[in-house]
Design a protein around this nucleic acid. Structure first.
Lengths: 248, 248
DNA sequence: TACCGCTATTTTGCATTCATTTTTTGTCCA
DNA sequence: TGGACAAAAAATGAATGCAAAATAGCGGTA
């Protein structure tokens, strides 16, 4: 059964199944397990942009037949991570600049919504936790620790989404975030101190609005914040990509 | 091959394939064709809430084998239209009141986003077209023509989404709209003249903000508008469901 | 050598088959 | 009569098989 793997372009390393996330009850069946693992595999960028998804090879790698794999591929295609070419299998979807702009805007809309809803339901404790993250992030900012900064930043945004108390929104958010994650835009766009300082100010405004439970105001600020992020990211992408190697 | 269909609970009438919509390139393959038809079949409410999706029966009805059907089912499950029970097949997803509230809020967020984006890109001609629809809708309102009213109303909202110039958003919007469509909330919630008149006023405010390209203002109005819709719909659902037959 | 057309191999899409699990049916016994 | 158990039937989940399509390989010709 466990046959040797013929060498092809794609690096073969079985992705570890991550802890459960969204998804109805997929994780129970083999198909669901495959779906989770394959999604992570793609999101983490293990297959280069626009490259074919080698069906047979993945089957051998995962030790399964083609049926459940193909089912998972169909789902990933519906999610927008890969695309299906008739009689030519699946390719990792290549996002055009336009696609990225669209995705960023949709993310902005979802976060903007999350902020609005969060204002209706968020507890003082949750706000305190976010403040905590904010100060933590500020520390990273001062120390120019970009990695830490982004981690804290992401957790703040996730906290806001969580405070919205809307699982449907959360799932949609995770889905779009996954599509974008393949693009390593965050790598160095904030090198510009200018933008970085701006972002910090925006985050302060976010916190302020959140404290006051000013829903529609927060909604505005979040949208604008994400819009600015988008601009920075896109600008970065169109410039010479100094430090965005295909596979590190 | 074309065997006779054993009688079961589910009405067997092949759904006509509708014109293409979203979806990558699905429509080319058999699987994609099935996906489109099956989605419409479910969205149109041909299978009762919470009922099993009869695999074998659908295969016979569609004249295909189980493989492409099951692929389509997996996608529909990912879209949230049905749910997969391990070893017990698929069921049409039953939306709780909470689910509906969540869905409405997400729709509100997406439309709110659409309005904001539309203000950046909409042409005068498009605005004129929406005004046209608005007057048309007003006519239906005056004549108490609910069906016409809802049609015009839906076209207005779709026009706004279209004016946002964001295919990603449009697809997501269509997806969520489909999930809700199964619930025939619109049937008579607007019987209350009160709410109906309110909705008309809100629509006038929407148009006004759109004309002025007041993005964040429009965003607010749209969110509130949808929120009110949600409230009306949910209220309606929790009351004695006078005219919501399972299958007309 | 570059280019074209032809055949062989691989890959894809779907149907079919097989092993389990679930559901139904039937029977026995209190 | 009714309930518990067991066997039969059906359905599900995944593997395998097969025809059609696409890709790669190869030889011939200019």
């Amino acid at each position: 059964m466990k046959s040797t793997i013929p060498d092809t372009g794609v690096p073969i390393t079985p992705p570890a199944s991550n802890g459960d996330r969204q998804e109805n009850r997929h994780e129970a069946s083999l198909h669901g397990e495959i779906l989770l693992r394959l999604r992570d595999y793609v999101v983490e960028g293990n297959i280069p942009e626009g490259a074919r998804v080698p069906e047979r090879q993945l089957c051998e790698m995962l030790g399964i037949s083609r049926t459940p794999l193909r089912e998972a591929l169909k789902v990933l295609a519906a999610e927008g991570l890969i695309e299906l070419l008739p009689n030519r299998g699946a390719r990792v979807r290549q996002l055009s600049q336009r696609d990225l702009e669209e995705l960023f805007d949709v993310m902005a809309g979802l976060e903007s919504l999350a902020g609005r809803l969060a204002c209706e339901a968020i507890t003082d404790a949750e706000i305190t936790a976010i403040e905590q993250l904010h100060y933590e992030m500020y520390g990273y900012y001062l120390h120019r620790d970009m990695h830490g900064y982004f981690q804290a930043n992401q957790r703040i945004h996730e906290s806001i989404v969580a405070a919205a108390r809307n699982e449907t929104l959360k799932t949609a958010y995770a889905n779009f975030a996954g599509r974008i994650r393949r693009v390593r835009y965050s790598a160095n766009f904030a090198r510009r101190r200018q933008r970085w300082a701006e972002a910090m100010r925006e985050h302060e405004a976010i916190l302020d609005a959140l404290r006051r439970r000013a829903g529609s105001e927060l909604s505005d600020i979040l949208f604008q914040h994400l819009r600015n992020k988008r601009t920075a990211a896109i600008e970065h992408l169109t410039e010479p990509q100094e430090s965005v190697p295909a596979s590190p």
